[in-house]
Write a protein that binds this DNA or RNA. Structure first.
Length: 538
DNA sequence: GCTGCCGGGCG
DNA sequence: CGCCCGGCAGC
């Protein structure tokens, strides 16, 4: 708890204001509310600064109605907003009130917690169960809790040594990003969402459900939790391939030329309203947020640069916006079908679609690193590079020629085979391992204009990738020329746990074989470092 | 046993 | 981050 001292102190300043209601917790609450990530450390600091203050406050709380109250005006407003929402939108939740009083009484814990509570009694029960659990050891689970119940870990920080804490913080960041962002979104929603007043309450209710669903989703990374509404495997393959959006041949120039691998809401994709921006409508008019600084908030879900594989992953969910529904599915097709059949009542004509469903669902992205593991283990390159891969339906294997692993992985291979052409991007990418090779590369990669096949020519025999003909019609059955890139998650992906974490191992000759041990200096850097060969990629 | 390369350590 | 290597696993 060294580096965050100033922040925590600053955050703890507003303490006296809460001293009247909840003296012992107030400091921790403030810290928790505005910077959940720092929570662990914040608690430790409490002993230094806020602790004494706290004790003092405890003694003279009644006698000191205001101490730092004036410093807290802005935060006060924040809180006010949320409180208003809590009171206004639902009155049957007594647990909420209790919860708020018990907890930090701040916007942050309230948001997610309430969302979780709203889903139903089952989830509420689950939530509370968590709270009473012994949280000391299991870091991943604990981290999730700390957002929901910051006070539950009051003691935790004391036991954790610094190293653990750091680790835990990292872990926590990933595990609870979605929660943070949701929380933020919630606040914004409460203050200024631009919806018709008649619909507002239901809208918020939907948001609650989605919030809850997402919270549960993030929790579901813990093996203990198998939450019904969102099945984990469903979103499995939707991680990065959807980032590519609809591959339109017209955008090819941009496609082939960019060099920096990044899957953060790629600007070149024709899908602004969906990826990271799917929350924009709720965010934009928001007042500057308190604890979580804006930049980090923006990064919360989508930003990680991903220099290497297995770094980042998105789970894409589709949420039904229909009144009082809020169903969350993992595929666009699924949600469309859901809306068609359930809400639009088009049972018979299941295939027919005029695109109306598109207005009733929205896309949600979740960051789930664990999801990436299964896939990326098979991917030859960083997942971020698969942007160019067209999101399409599974295609018959016959349409692919000799993708090396096509026979071994059938279903999982589908997204990967599509991403196969992206291997070419290594040519443009300055991969860390790709030091300047001693040989020159003659015409490293070629893109044949028919759009369906590539050839890469190197020293090794040319490898030919035959992709799928790029066609926008692929991905949108509805055909409403809207630019929404529908991610077609492949539901049939096998459960992640069974996937071998190790790459199949390339069968081509590598530097070592080609040049021999005696010419080790001619190897590519990766080979020299005993990493995956970057010169003879297979 | 050879080989590719992942995971991790070191500076 | 560059560099190296132990050790695992596929062949």
């Amino acid at each position: 708890g060294v580096f965050c001292v100033p922040e925590v102190i600053a955050v703890s300043l507003p303490l006296p204001r809460n001293a009247g209601t909840d003296p012992p917790r107030a400091g921790a609450a403030a810290a928790a509310a505005s910077s959940p990530v720092l929570l662990l450390l914040g608690e430790e600091d409490e002993d230094e600064e806020g602790g004494s203050r706290r004790r003092r406050g405890l003694g003279r709380a009644p006698a000191k109605p205001r101490g730092g109250a004036e410093e807290e005006d802005d935060e006060d407003e924040d809180e006010e907003v949320v409180v208003e929402v809590v009171d206004g939108d639902d009155d049957d939740e007594d647990g909420d009130e209790r919860f708020v009083a018990l907890g930090p009484g701040r916007a942050l814990p309230k948001g997610p917690a309430r969302g979780a509570l709203k889903v139903g009694s089952i989830k509420r029960e689950m939530t509370f169960t968590f709270q009473t659990e012994d949280l000391k050891r299991d870091s991943s689970k604990k981290m999730s809790h700390q957002h929901l119940f910051p006070l539950a870990m009051e003691e935790d920080a004391k036991t954790a040594d610094t190293k653990k804490a750091n680790r835990a913080l990292d872990h926590e960041k990933e595990n609870t990003r979605s929660i943070c962002l949701l929380e933020q979104k919630r606040k914004v929603v409460s203050s200024s969402i631009d919806v018709p007043p008649a619909r507002k309450s239901s809208e918020e209710l939907d948001m609650d459900k989605v919030t809850a669903a997402m919270v549960l989703t993030s929790l579901s990374t813990s093996p203990l939790v198998r939450s019904p509404p969102v099945r984990q495997n469903e979103g499995l393959s939707g991680s990065w391939k959807e980032a590519g959006g609809v591959p339109s041949s017209s955008s090819s120039s941009g496609y082939w030329s960019w060099s920096a691998p990044s899957d953060q809401s790629n600007p070149s994709t024709p899908s602004p309203p969906l990826s990271a921006d799917s929350f924009k409508p709720f965010r934009s008019p928001a007042p500057p947020d308190d604890g979580i600084d804006e930049a980090e908030a923006g990064n919360l879900l989508f930003d990680e640069p991903i220099p290497r594989k297995r770094k980042n992953s998105m789970k894409v969910m589709f949420k039904c916006l229909w009144k009082n529904c809020g169903k969350v599915l993992s595929t666009a097709v699924g949600i469309q079908k859901h809306i068609r059949t359930i809400h639009l009542g088009r049972v018979g004509e299941s295939d027919y679609s005029d695109g109306e469903e598109d207005f009733y669902y929205t896309e949600i992205k979740l960051n789930t690193d664990s999801v990436a593991d299964g896939l990326s283990s098979l991917a030859p390159v960083s997942p971020s590079q698969s942007l160019a891969s067209p999101p399409t339906f599974p295609i018959p294997d016959s349409s692919r020629t000799e993708t090396p692993c096509a026979k071994t992985e059938t279903k999982l291979m589908t997204p990967l085979s599509r991403s196969a052409p992206t291997t070419l991007y290594l040519v443009h990418t300055d991969h860390a391992y790709q030091a300047t090779p001693p040989v020159t590369i003659p015409g490293a990669a070629k893109f044949t204009p028919n759009g369906s096949s590539f050839s890469i020519s190197w020293q090794s025999p040319p490898v030919t990738f035959t992709g799928i003909p790029v066609s926008p019609t692929h991905s949108h059955p509805a055909g409403t020329g809207e630019q929404r890139p529908h991610t077609h998650t492949i539901l049939s992906s096998p459960p992640r746990g069974t996937v071998s974490l190790r790459k199949p191992r390339g069968e081509g000759k590598k530097c070592r074989k080609v040049y021999g041990m005696e010419n080790r200096d001619m190897w590519c850097t990766a080979c020299r470092w005993k990493k995956a060969c970057q010169r003879f990629i297979d």
